[in-house]
Amino acid sequence: MDPINFVILAAILFAIGAAAVLLRRNAIVAFMGVELMLNASNLALVAFSRIHGEIDGQVMAFFVMVVAAAEVVVGLAIIIAVFRARQTISLDEPAELKG
C-alpha cells in the first residue's frame, strides 16, 4: 500500500484538530486540538521521508516535537495563570482583545 495514504490520514487528523480549536471553548481541549494538528504535520513529514527515501523529514519531525514540547509547557503555564486570575479556562471569557 502506498505510503501516500498516511499523508491523507494526516490531512484528516489536521482537519479534526482545526475543528476542535474552532469549536471547543475549553482552553485545554482547544490546546489538545493544536497538539493534534502538530502531530498530523509530523505524520506527513515522516510519510514524505519514507516516500522520498531521505531522512531529513524525520529530523524535521523531531524538531517539531521539541518545539511542541516547549509550546506545551508555556501554553499550560499560561492556562494555569489565567485560571488563577479568573477561575475559568473558557476561551470566550477573556475578551480584553476586544477593539
Binding site: 482545526a18 480549536v21 474552532l22 476561551l91 470566550d92 475578551a95 477593539g99
Partner: peptide
Amino acid sequence: VVRRAQNGQVRSYALTML
C-alpha cells in the same frame, strides 16, 4: 470602522486565520 472586526473572541480570530 475597522475596530468592529475585533470582537475579542480568540476562536473567532482562529477562524479568520484558518
